[in-house]
Design a binder for these strands. Structure first.
Lengths: 233, 233
DNA sequence: TAGTGGTCTAGACCACGGT
DNA sequence: CCGTGGTCTAGACCACTAG
C-alpha cells in the first residue's frame, strides 16, 4: 500500500465513523507529518485526494475541515430543494424498505449477480408545500446490508445511512432521462392530470462495494420546480 | 504569476493554438524541468491541472498526450450520439448564425451586460436515421467574436470553433430540465405528435471570457434516445 | 507572533513501456 | 536498457488567519 493511500484511507475511515465530524478540523499537515513520520508532499497528496472526493475543504491559514460530502457526481437536484430554506419540504414513505423482486421497471440492466440476490425496495414521495414534486423508487441487493430492514435512516438519508452504518460510499453514477406521460397510478400519486409530461430519471449508483449497486427511478413534476445542476472548474 | 500557473497556461495556449495537436505527446516532465529551470514538483503541478481540466491524459512509461477535450461538466448527452458509430447521424442548420434579439425563450436570466450587446443566434436539428432527436437553439453576445457570422464552424462544432479561433473555453455550466408538451411549431419540426412529452434542457455556459455567456435551449425527443451521463471518481 | 496551508527546490528510487 | 511518469524525502520561504 502506498503511503499517501494509507493516510488517505485512514482519515477517510475516521471521517466516516464519526471520529472527525462535519465541521471538525483534521490534524494539521505538519502534525500528520510527525505523527506518521512522512513528508509534507505525501501528506498533501493524501489531503488533495480527500478534497477531490469531497470529504474536506481547505482554508489557507486555518486548516482542513470535514464538510458535508457532496459527491459532485453530475447529479441532478430539484431546484429549490434543500437550499430553499423558506420552503415547506416533506418526505413521505409510500413504502418503507421491504423484501421485493427485481422488476422491469428498472430501466438500467440489472447485473446477473444482483439477480441472484434478494432485492430490497423502498419508495418515497418528496413534496414542497404539500405538492408532490418527486416520486422516488429504489431497488438494491440486501446481501451486504445486514439488518437493513430494521435500520433507521440516518438523518432521513439513504446515502448517509450507507456511509455511517455500512461504510459504503457512492463512487459513481449513470443517469438516463426521459420525458414521459404521467399514467394512471403515477398521475394520482403525483396529483397530476393524467397524460401530463413527467420527467423520468433512471439512475444506477455504483458504490465502493462491488456487491452493491443501487437502481433508482425518479419521476419529477417539473412544472413548478425544474431539476438541474451546475458545474464549474 | 505562480510558476506552475505560467507553465500550465503556456502549454494550454499551445494546445489551443494547435502547436500540440490531439494525439501529440507533450515534452516529458524532465524536459520541461530543464527547459524552464524548475523542479519536477512544479512541472507536475501544472500537468496535474491540465489533466483535471481535460486537456491531456497521462500514461506511466509513455508520456502525457493531448486528447480531445471533454469537459466532464456533468452535461447530458444523447445516448447513442457520437459513440454509436453504426448510426446514421445528421446535423442540419435550421438557422445559420444571424443577428437576432434577446428573447424570453431563454429561461436563464440574461445578464444586464449581455442585454446591452448585440445578440447572435443559430438553430440546429440533430437527427439519427433521419428522425429528429434534438432541436438546439443558441443565443450569445457577439461582442467578443469578431467576424463570427462569416466564420465556418471547425469540424461542425460550435465549441471547437470558440476554442480554436477565439481561444475561448467553457469553464462551467448550469442546467435546468423540464418535461413539457411539444407544441405546434416544435411538434412539426421534431416530427412529433402535438402534445407529446418533450425534454426541455436549458443551459447557461460560462466561459473564460467574462464577456461571453452562451444560452442554449434544447428540446429532446427521448422516446428512442434518452439523454444521460455517467460519472465516476 | 505562532500556526496553517500554498509554492518551490534538489534530489532519490520505483513501476511501466518500448527498443 | 533507457526514458517515461509515480512516489517520496528533507528541507525552504511565502500568504493567510487569528489571538
Amino acid at each position: 500500500m502506498l503511503k499517501y493511500q494509507a493516510i488517505k484511507e485512514g482519515l477517510k475511515k475516521q471521517i466516516q465513523q464519526g471520529v472527525f465530524k462535519v465541521g471538525d478540523y483534521l490534524p494539521s499537515e505538519s502534525d500528520l507529518c510527525t505523527r506518521f513520520s512522512i513528508t509534507r508532499t505525501t501528506v498533501r497528496k493524501a489531503m488533495e485526494e480527500l478534497l477531490k472526493e469531497g470529504y474536506i475543504e481547505k482554508q489557507q491559514g486555518k486548516g482542513s475541515r470535514v464538510r458535508e460530502r457532496q459527491t459532485s457526481l453530475g447529479l441532478l437536484t430539484v431546484k429549490g430543494f434543500s437550499e430553499a430554506v423558506g420552503q415547506n419540504i416533506q418526505t413521505e414513505f409510500l413504502q418503507k424498505p421491504v423484501l421485493s423482486v427485481w422488476t422491469s421497471e428498472i430501466l438500467f440492466p440489472v447485473s446477473d449477480h444482483d439477480k441472484t440476490e434478494q432485492c430490497l425496495f423502498f419508495e418515497r414521495l418528496r413534496m414542497v408545500d404539500n405538492l408532490p414534486v418527486v416520486l422516488e423508487r429504489n431497488w438494491f441487493s440486501g446481501a451486504v446490508l445486514p439488518d437493513f430492514l430494521k435500520t433507521q435512516f440516518v438523518e432521513g438519508s439513504f446515502f448517509k445511512t450507507l456511509s455511517r452504518k455500512y461504510l459504503i460510499e457512492v463512487i459513481g453514477s449513470s443517469q438516463e432521462l426521459r420525458a414521459e406521460r404521467a399514467e394512471n397510478h403515477f398521475a394520482e400519486v403525483m396529483q397530476m392530470e393524467s397524460g401530463t409530461p413527467v420527467l423520468h430519471i433512471s439512475i444506477r449508483f455504483v458504490t465502493n462495494n462491488p456487491q452493491l449497486t443501487i437502481y433508482s427511478e425518479l419521476y419529477c413534476n417539473t412544472k413548478k420546480y425544474p431539476v438541474g445542476n451546475s458545474y464549474f472548474l
